Simulated scan of single mutants.
Amino acid sequence: MDAFLEYGFLQTALAAGLLASIGCGVMGSYVVVKRIGYMAGGISHSVLAGMGAALFFGFSPMLGALIAALVAALFIGWIKLRWQAQEDTLIGAMWAIGMSIGVLFISRTPGYSTDLMSYLFGNILLVSRSQLWEMAALNVLVIGMVLAFYRQFLAVSFDEEFARLRGVPVNFFYLLFLCLVALTVVLLVQVVGLILVIALLTLPAAIAGHYIHTMGRMMILASGLGMVFTSVGIWLSYVLDMPTGAIIILVAGSCYLLSALFSQWWRERHSGSTAS
Rank of each mutant, 00 (worst) to 15 (best):
V146F: 08
L90T: 01
S118G: 04
Y150N: 14
M215I: 15
I91L: 10
Y211Q: 00
A208M: 07
I106M: 14
Q131V: 02
I91D: 07
A155V: 08
F162H: 08
L126D: 07
G144T: 00
I195L: 14
T109Q: 05
R217W: 15
E87L: 01
Y211D: 03
G144R: 04
L178N: 07
R108A: 15
I220H: 08
L120K: 02
F121W: 00
A222R: 05
V181I: 13
L120G: 05
Q190C: 03
L141R: 01
M227N: 01
I212W: 10
A137E: 01
D115Y: 13
I101T: 10
I207W: 07
V228D: 10
T214F: 11
Y211E: 03
L225D: 08
P110D: 12
Q84E: 15
A155K: 04
L176T: 06
S118P: 03
S100A: 15
S113I: 11
L225N: 08
G102R: 01
N139G: 09
I124L: 09
Q190W: 02
E87I: 01
L188A: 11
V168C: 08
F173L: 01
V181F: 03
Y174L: 13
G102P: 02
G226C: 05
I198M: 06
A137G: 05
G122A: 01
V181Q: 02
A148C: 07
F173V: 04
P204S: 06
A96S: 14
L90W: 12
